[in-house]
């Protein structure tokens, strides 16, 4: 459970959760995607509140262990400037059986995204930047609300 400013060695991370007690290992990688709602990303900048983020990652491990027979779990989140395709987060979890491993892995990444104090800033290809804060409207450009194709055009 840690934050890093270096590229994530997901092979080593995966190896670290393997065990003869576990018949299933699931690895999730979050990677920097180019297109979001038709806009092109050039890069992402990640920032975190380190002390709290590490405490919350430890809490996530505890929560997963209360729900599934987790043998080992390891999570690394990267901070700093990431280019397209770079790995921003890796979640590795091992359980005796695959169903539990898949469920625990999904739970961990879903919870991480709402609980752990880390933020990403979009660097769009039009030169603007924008913090991603779910539920808060974007600040870089105030696009008009999306009008569905069924919405009649007023004249």
């Amino acid at each position: 459970m840690k934050l890093t400013r270096e590229p994530i060695d997901y092979t080593a991370l995966t190896e670290s959760v393997r065990s003869p007690a576990a018949g299933a290992v699931v690895l999730f990688l979050g990677t920097v995607r180019e297109m979001t709602n038709g806009r092109r990303t050039l890069a992402l900048d990640y920032e975190g509140y380190a002390e709290m983020a590490e405490a919350k990652l430890a809490q996530l491990e505890q929560e997963a262990r209360e729900r599934w027979p987790v043998v080992n779990v390891a999570i690394v989140h990267r901070l700093g400037h990431l280019e397209l395709g770079d790995i921003s987060v890796a979640v590795a979890v091992s359980c005796p059986h695959r169903r539990d491993a898949f469920e625990a892995g999904q739970y961990l990444i879903d919870r991480l995204k709402v609980l752990v104090p880390i933020w990403k800033k979009e660097n769009w290809d039009d030169g603007t930047t924008e913090w991603v804060h779910p539920g808060i409207e974007e600040n870089a450009t105030n696009l008009p609300p999306f009008q569905g194709p069924e919405t009649p055009v007023s004249r």
């Binding site: 509140y49 709290m52 989140h77 921003s88 991480l112 752990v116 933020w119 779910p134 539920g135 808060i136």
Partner: peptide, 10 residues
């Protein structure tokens, strides 16, 4: 005390 907008890690 810390104050911040909704998180967006991952």
């Amino acid at each position: 005390i810390a104050c911040f907008p909704p998180v967006s890690g991952g």
